[in-house]
């Protein structure tokens, strides 16, 4: 064992040694070096684009030339509040709420079983069971439903085999949610939305349930609560932040989606489709920008509410 005899050693020297010493002496410089690239990218490019877009919502479009007039005005927002556009917003919000509620109801038993009863291999299986659909291709999932909901597809075939075709037709005859066939009805749109966003609800709910300590449930039953009462008064309130965290995803994703209603659904527009149409063929960037403000405002409000419920700790 050779050992240096001085208590303070000379520096390593060289470029790296000098640089390392300099960064050690200036922790702020180190922080700056680490933060500069991501902040430049996200803060300047991304936020810059976002604000540029929002700024455009305060411009308007010249009705005759179709060109953007670069003057500050609220004209575009007045246009946004037309009844036809309000219809689009209401339709999208109602769909987002229904999808969120349905996802919560379907996700809870899966999350509850995975968190409370599954163990070992089963637990991993349940986890992957939610993870794989979450990460598998969005378009493939929609495509699968196009196959399922087609007139000649598997769902109609099953109804026919079960002699329930009349029931399906009665459902499709209902106003608003019905339509010529499932693939052009709101029911179809709703089914695909629920299917595509469901895993986003399962994982946070399961995580919240896993964090409820066993002793708390034992304490509840020790204090005389029936299993149903324990569920109602202990488990559900503790799982709620997880469900709210999941709902942030299902709600936000439904608000902004434009591909699902385009492929499976009626011809009436959702917010995402309206944005797409206005920026594309119509070339009305100001109105498209104003439309994007709607989900941003709704989500801002939603996130604020969720934060008050402590949902961020469950993310």
């Amino acid at each position: 064992m050779t050992s240096p005899s001085h208590a303070i050693l000379p520096g390593r020297g060289g470029m790296f040694g000098t640089l390392s010493d300099a960064l050690w002496r200036n922790p702020r410089l180190l922080l700056f070096v680490m933060l500069a690239p991501p902040l430049l990218w996200l803060g300047v490019i991304y936020l810059g684009s976002l604000f540029a877009l929002l700024a455009q919502s305060f411009f308007s479009i010249d009705e005759f030339s179709g060109l953007i007039r670069y003057e500050w005005t609220l004209k575009t927002y007045a246009e946004l509040l037309r009844p036809s556009n309000l219809d689009i917003i209401a339709r999208t919000v109602i769909m987002a709420v229904s999808v969120t509620l349905a996802s919560a109801v379907i996700a809870f038993p899966i999350a509850y079983f995975a968190a409370r009863y599954a163990r070992g291999k089963w637990k991993a299986l349940f986890y992957l069971g939610a993870m794989l659909p979450l990460w598998s291709s969005y378009l493939v999932k929609i495509y699968a439903w196009k196959l399922i909901l087609a007139k000649e597809g598997i769902l109609n075939w099953i109804f026919a085999k079960l002699h329930l075709t009349a029931l399906l037709e009665a459902w499709l005859a209902l106003p608003v949610i019905g339509g010529n066939s499932l693939s052009v009805s709101y029911t179809g749109t709703f089914l695909v939305f629920v299917y595509v966003w469901l895993p986003y609800m399962i994982l946070p709910t399961q995580a919240a349930l896993e964090r409820v300590p066993e002793s708390m449930l034992e304490a509840s039953s020790d204090l005389g609560a029936s299993p149903a009462q324990t569920f109602r008064h202990v488990l559900l309130p503790l799982a709620l932040p997880g469900i709210i965290a999941g709902s942030i995803f299902t709600f936000s994703l439904t608000l902004g989606d434009y591909i699902i209603p385009q492929i499976i659904g009626s011809s009436r527009l959702f917010i995402g489709q309206a944005v797409y149409a206005h920026q594309g063929t119509a070339g009305n960037i100001p109105l498209a920008a104003a439309f994007t403000v709607v989900p941003i405002v709704i989500m801002g409000f939603y996130l604020w509410m969720a934060k008050r419920q402590g949902a961020f700790d469950a993310l």
Binding site: L35, P38, L39, L42, G43, I45, Y46, L47, G48, S49, L50, A52, L53, Q56, I248, S252, L253, L255, G256, D257, Y258, G272, V275, Y276, Q279, I285, A288, A289, T292, P295, I296, M299
Partner: peptide, 26 residues
Amino acid sequence: ISLLVILPIALPGIITGIALRSAFNI
């Protein structure tokens, strides 16, 4: 900073998309 990193995925994709598109145009 955490919020900034999460934002591009928390906001609907169409907003990120159209914002970048109009920035490229500008």
